[in-house]
């Protein structure tokens, strides 16, 4: 009896993790990282075969992957060449995603280990998916070190559904620097005159927006068909 209930509990947890696993892959893909389609659209059975222990409990320590930015993403994130810097380096690099095996809340030490791992392997970005919330000081570690590596944290429960697949969420597209400059020039705006989006907004977190970046939002409209609006991340 007890075994049965624990098995069903494991199954429930594995299913939750599978959904988070899919969402985080879709997120990486939407940000422009290169991922194989079969990696993103993994079936529950395959996930269960690969990422569970013998007793059916999920094996979070195994749930990790890295992804390289695609050509298009590198192009988007490379600043325009200037006379002083004719061949600028792209501002993006390999991303590292890891599910935290610790199920209790995350303290300084766990966070530090993750940041160190990202720094040692020269990852430009790191995403830590945790089962429970970060402690206040761990959050501080995350922001302090974010100059070298961009560290982000997501809760498993926030990844159970991919919010961008909801029909009421319009399409958000990140603009490159040139596109942003062209937009401001065309409408003769200062960037502060644009409408804003908070960097903690769920969509902004999904796309990993940084302050100063602009997203183009394409909505469908009953009267106008489609229209685009722009928002500056603050």
């Amino acid at each position: 009896m007890e075994e049965e209930s624990s098995a069903s509990m494991h199954l429930k947890e594995v299913t939750r993790l599978w959904r988070a696993w899919r969402t985080i892959h879709e997120m990486a893909q939407d940000r422009g990282y290169e991922l194989a389609e079969e990696e993103v659209k993994i079936s529950l059975d395959r996930f269960r075969a690969e990422y569970t222990n013998d007793d059916g409990s999920p094996n979070r320590a195994k749930m990790q992957f890295s992804a390289r930015p695609s050509e298009a993403m590198i192009k988007k994130f490379t600043p325009p060449p200037t006379p002083s810097n004719p061949d600028p380096a792209p501002e993006c690099g390999t991303i590292w995603v890891e599910f935290c095996p610790d199920k209790s809340s995350i303290g300084i030490s766990v966070m530090k280990k993750f940041v160190e791992h990202c720094a040692q392997n020269n990852f430009k970005a790191g995403i830590l998916v945790t089962a429970s919330a970060l402690s206040a000081q761990a959050r501080k570690v995350m922001t302090v070190t974010s100059q070298f590596t961009l560290i982000e944290c997501f809760l498993e429960e926030d990844l159970l559904v991919n919010i961008t697949h909801h029909e009421l969420v319009p399409k958000h597209i990140l603009l490159s620097r040139e596109e942003k400059a062209a937009l401001l020039k065309r409408y003769r705006l200062k960037e502060t005159q644009l409408p804003r989006i908070l960097s903690k907004d769920p969509i902004a977190r999904y796309l990993g927006l940084k302050k100063g970046q602009v997203v183009k939002i394409i909505r469908t409209s009953e009267t106008a068909g489609r229209y685009a609006s722009y928002r500056l991340c603050v």
């Binding site: 303290g107 402690s135 206040a136 000081q137």
Partner: peptide, 11 residues
């Protein structure tokens, strides 16, 4: 309070 939280994170 953060310190208490931090110690609790370590169990």
């Amino acid at each position: 309070l953060d310190l208490i939280e931090e110690r609790n994170c370590l169990g």
